[in-house]
């Protein structure tokens, strides 16, 4: 269960490195692009990916990912197509953890069982549903038990001790710590409470913690990695690609950016 994720985190631990998990919206601007981009970013230093399924009403997302989702939907991206693309890219990066991130309604529309079966079949390793807290997740978690697919739950700056323990108990793979109040989006400054909350989480955690939401610069990534097992970078990456016009330039900019984060993360780990 969760074989690739576990292997990835084991390797990172042995190497004394922090994990780098870029988030991209599948199908922005089209699925062929995403299909090509993921292996390139792996070469540039990414350890695993979060693959976002676009949704019409992404209420946990800020303007960058909203725009990205709208571009993807306008291009005709469908959940079926995203799964197909994951299956194809799996062949190129057989060991890289792939985490699907989708709001709940597209899963409901497909059917819980069909979605879980499909995601496992194409080689996804985990699923994050930002609008599905553990309390509402029984049905899908139960189905996942029969597949090599784990549910990842989130914690936030507002999470109580009780909820930290809850998420630690019921989730799989890793804990996704939402590093700031509010929605996704690159920020100039990190949450000042970040270290303190992560210390609370680290005290009880029995699986790796990745921090997402708001990380932009290599320095920020390095700082966060000082308190966690890795970082998730989404909006800032999408901003970087949005600034370029051609596909080639978007891909090059994305890879350069991932390489700079990789460098920042590795530098900090060797220094400390």
């Amino acid at each position: 269960m969760g074989g690739r994720l576990e292997a990835c985190f084991n390797r990172l631990r042995t190497e004394g490195r922090a994990g780098l998990f870029p988030f991209v919206t599948a199908g922005d601007p089209d699925l062929g692009f995403t299909r090509e981009l993921l292996p390139l970013m792996t070469e540039a230093g990414a350890d695993g990916f979060e693959i976002g399924v676009p949704f019409s009403d992404p209420l946990a997302d800020g303007p960058t990912i909203q725009r990205s989702s709208m571009r993807s939907l306008a291009g005709g991206t469908r959940l079926n197509g995203v799964l197909e693309m994951v299956g194809e890219v799996r062949a190129d990066i057989p060991d890289t953890p792939l985490v699907l991130m989708t709001y709940y309604n597209p899963i409901i529309a497909m059917g819980l069982a069909e979605f879980v079966r499909g995601a496992a079949q194409v080689g996804a390793d985990a699923v994050i549903v930002p609008d599905l807290p553990p309390e509402e997740a029984n049905a899908i978690v139960e189905i996942m038990h029969d597949y090599p697919l784990v549910p990842v739950f989130m914690l936030a700056p507002t999470s109580t001790q009780e909820r930290i323990e809850l998420v630690n108990d019921v989730g799989g793979g890793f804990i996704y710590y939402v590093g700031q109040m509010g929605v996704t989006g690159a920020r100039d400054a990190l949450d000042s409470d970040l270290g303190a909350t992560l210390t609370r989480i680290n005290r009880v955690k029995n699986r790796p913690v990745l921090v997402g939401f708001g990380i932009k610069t290599p320095e920020q990534a390095a700082e966060v990695a000082g308190h966690a097992d890795g970082v998730i970078v989404g909006s800032a990456l999408i901003d970087v690609m949005e600034a370029e016009a051609s596909r080639e330039d978007k891909m090059r900019a994305a890879c350069d950016y991932i390489a700079s984060l990789r460098e920042g993360l590795d530098r900090s780990k060797t220094v400390s």
Binding site: D131, E135, E136, T158, L166, G182
Partner: peptide
């Protein structure tokens, strides 16, 4: 550990489908 029950149901409808930040 808190109980894993969905709160606020009208039959099979309702519940609480929100990001973790809002749950507390």
């Amino acid at each position: 550990m808190s109980e894993l029950v969905s709160r606020g149901r009208f039959g099979r409808f309702g519940g609480r489908y929100v990001p973790e930040t809002l749950m507390p």
